[in-house]
Computed example of a mutant assay.
Amino acid sequence: MDLTELVAREAARTGFAGVVRVDRAGATELSLAFGLADRRHGLAMTPDSQVAMASGSKGMTALAVMSLVEDGTLALTTTARSLLGADLPLVADDVTVEHLLAHRSGIGDYVDEDADTPISAYAMTVPVHELATTEQFLAVLDGFPTKFRAGERFAYCNGGFVVLALLAERASGVPFHDLVRDRVCAPAGLVDTDFLRSDALPGRAALGYVEQDGAWRTNVFHLPVLGSGDGGMYTTGADVHRFWTALFAGRIVGTDTVASMVAPRSDVPQEGRRYGLGFWLHPTRDVAQLEGYDAGVSFRSLHDPADGLTVTVVGTTSDAAWPLLRALERELIG
C-alpha cells in the first residue's frame, strides 16, 4: 500500500492530530500533518508545527552529558554524590553517570512508571510554575528511597535524567538548557528544537491535550512550565530528521561515542526492546529510537542508519501516535 494512503487511512480511523514524517536515503518520502494544533482557535497542524517530544528529550540530555564526558568535564564513572553534595541524600553513593544514562541507577523516581496513576492525573507535587530551572527540581526529586543496588537491573527512571541534567550543569558551570542548545542543537543544525515554556509557546507550537471530565483541555497544568533532563523539548519533523543525520555522522559527539550509546546495555522484555545510553533500541536490529509519552504528548522517532530510514510520529494526546506508529513500523521495519 502507498505510504500516504496508509497514513491517511489510519489517521482518519483514529482521529489523529499530529505530524508524520518518513525519510529514506536522503529523500523525504512523507511529510504530513493532521488535525488541529490549537483546538480553541481552530488552528490547523502543519508539517512545520513545533511539537512536544516529552521523554524523547532524554536522548538530547544523554548527548549533552556524553559531550562533557568527551571533553573530560565528566566521566561515566563520576558519582552523582560527588556533585550533589548534601542534596538528594537518598541517592546511593555508588550511583554513577553511566548508571543514570542506562536507567540502571536504582534510585527512586518522582514520576513512577510502575505506579497505577492515570496519565490525566495532576502528578506534580509543587506548582508547575515553580519548575523552570534544573535546581528547582530538587523540590520534587527528594524523598524517594532506593529501589535496588546500582547496576543490578534496568528500571526506567525519569528522575535519573533530571539528576543527570543537574550533574551536567554543576560540573560545567553552564545552565542545562544552554548546554543542550550549544552542544546538541547547534552542531546538529536544529533550528526549531528547544525547551519552550508552556505558558509562552510561540505561534507554531502545537498544544497538548488531556481529556478531563469529558472535555479536552490543554496540558499546561500537568507538566513543568519548563522541562529539564527528562522532557520538555519541542521540535519539528524536519529537525528530527536533521538530528538523526547529524548524530550518526558524528557531528554532535564522535562516532565511537555514538556507537557506545546505541550498544545494548539492557534487554527490556516487557517493552519488547533493548536500551543503551539515552536511546531505546530495536529488539533484534540496529535501529535506534527516541520515545516520549506524557499528558498530552505521544512521540516516537526511529532511525535505521543502514539505509538512512527515519520514521517520526508525534501526536498531541497521550495515545494518538501509537496506532499510526504500529502501522508504519509493520510496513517499514517488520
Results as ranks from 00 to 15, higher is better:
141 L>Q: 05
119 I>E: 14
324 L>M: 02
220 V>H: 06
269 P>E: 11
81 R>I: 11
260 S>N: 14
295 A>S: 14
51 V>D: 01
275 Y>V: 11
190 L>E: 12
16 F>R: 11
162 V>H: 08
16 F>L: 09
67 S>M: 12
92 A>S: 13
270 Q>H: 13
173 G>N: 02
328 L>T: 06
180 V>Q: 15
9 R>K: 13
203 G>I: 05
9 R>S: 15
85 G>M: 10
253 V>N: 10
109 D>I: 08
177 H>Q: 02
152 E>T: 01
37 A>C: 01
107 I>V: 11
176 F>M: 12
108 G>V: 06
262 V>W: 04
280 W>G: 00
14 T>P: 01
185 C>D: 08
330 R>Y: 03
324 L>G: 01
203 G>V: 12
264 P>T: 06
203 G>L: 15
323 P>D: 11
23 D>F: 07
137 F>E: 08
220 V>A: 01
184 V>R: 12
104 R>D: 02
8 A>Q: 15
205 A>D: 05
302 L>F: 12
41 H>K: 10
46 T>Y: 11
303 H>V: 03
79 T>W: 07
203 G>Y: 07
325 L>R: 00
310 T>L: 08
250 G>C: 08
163 V>R: 02
269 P>K: 11
111 V>Y: 15
238 A>T: 03
263 A>W: 10
263 A>F: 05
298 S>W: 07
299 F>S: 03
94 D>N: 12
154 F>H: 06
82 S>K: 09
306 A>N: 10
119 I>D: 09
197 R>Y: 05
209 Y>I: 02
231 G>C: 08
155 A>K: 10
185 C>G: 12
219 N>E: 08
54 A>G: 04
285 R>I: 06
326 R>Q: 07
244 W>A: 00
188 A>Y: 07
244 W>C: 05
275 Y>R: 05
269 P>I: 05
14 T>E: 15
268 V>Q: 07
238 A>K: 02
200 A>F: 02
45 M>I: 00
172 S>G: 01
269 P>A: 06
315 G>N: 06
131 L>T: 02
198 S>C: 04
12 A>F: 07
273 R>T: 10
313 V>A: 04
251 R>A: 12
54 A>E: 13
173 G>P: 02
157 C>D: 07
219 N>H: 10
323 P>M: 04
122 Y>E: 11
24 R>Y: 10
189 G>E: 00
148 F>I: 03
260 S>R: 15
71 D>V: 03
3 L>H: 08
160 G>N: 06
77 T>M: 10
36 L>P: 01
104 R>N: 04
121 A>E: 13
117 T>H: 01
133 T>V: 09
306 A>V: 14
291 E>V: 10
147 K>R: 14
253 V>C: 02
82 S>D: 15
129 H>N: 12
73 T>A: 15
86 A>E: 15
142 D>W: 14
212 Q>E: 07
175 P>L: 05
225 V>S: 07
94 D>R: 09
